[in-house]
């Protein structure tokens, strides 16, 4: 399978990083700021702002830099673990005999951030939320490229994850990046931007799950490298700058 597409625009947020120049500098030191929360975009209605978790703020911040307010796009969200840390907090409060907050429950489901986003941005286009498990960022590309083949002119991909609570044993798996990170990519089949080719690969790779692969992809975007290969013991995929 080989598909050509164009990366029209991208934007990523992590603590201390909110523009392309920040990520250029990050390429050399690869460290993050401590405990910073993403700014909430001005487009988000006040009454919804209180519902945004730190992870949702990162997603909104990254996506907002990639979209035009007057044109809503189909969106493919992808997160390995979503807001599972919220579910853990609820389970802990149930263990203490407390009642579960309906708000916390509604915001803990895997598509909660996508739901909030569609309300805040009045998006009536097709929205998909993928839990890619072991396979990292590639399933989101496959889904988005499929939507482009179905004659959508542009699709927004939003990849996001936050470190899992220490409660969950992660070894021997490579699940966690050092910080929250969200990456938004606007893709199309034609037009201006960075032309890319996407294909599967027979390489055996050990690049970790999505949280780590997001950072590898950002590094690929800001570096001079022409090829990125990512995989996590199962399928492997390649991205080439053309």
């Amino acid at each position: 399978m080989t598909v050509d597409f164009v990366l029209r625009d991208w934007n990523a947020w992590a603590p201390g990083m909110s523009c392309h120049e920040d990520w250029q500098k990050w390429r050399d030191h690869q460290t993050f700021a401590q405990e910073e929360k993403a700014a909430i975009p001005a487009a988000v209605p006040k009454i919804l702002q209180r519902r945004l978790s730190p992870l949702a703020r990162a997603v909104f911040n990254a996506a907002d830099g990639c979209i035009d307010s007057d044109k809503s796009l189909p969106i493919v969200f992808s997160s390995a673990h979503g807001e599972v840390n919220k579910s853990l907090e609820m389970l802990k409060s149930m263990q203490k005999g407390e009642e579960v907050s309906p708000t916390a429950f509604s915001l803990s489901v895997h598509n909660a951030i996508a739901g909030l986003f569609s309300i805040a941005y009045d998006c009536h286009q097709e929205i998909t939320v993928i839990a890619p498990g072991q396979d990292g960022i590639a399933p989101a590309f496959i889904e988005a490229l499929g939507l482009l083949q179905e004659h959508h002119s542009e699709v927004l991909i939003v990849l996001y994850d936050e470190p899992l609570s220490d409660f969950y044993p992660s070894l021997p798996f490579a699940l966690n990046a050092p910080a929250i990170c969200a990456l938004a990519l606007k893709v199309s089949l034609t037009g201006n931007g960075l032309p890319l080719q996407f294909n599967n690969s027979s390489a055996h790779r050990d690049d970790g799950e999505q949280a780590l692969q997001i950072l590898s992809f950002i590094k690929f975007l800001v570096a001079d490298d022409n090829t990125l290969v990512l995989g996590n013991h199962r399928h492997s995929w390649e991205w080439h700058k053309k």
Binding site: I47, E99, S101, T103
Partner: peptide, 18 residues
């Protein structure tokens, strides 16, 4: 009015019960 929604109604119901 305040612009609250159905989730807020549930949350408020729980707080009033407590």
């Amino acid at each position: 009015g305040l612009g609250l929604d159905s989730i807020d109604a549930l949350e408020l119901g729980l707080a009033i019960r407590k």
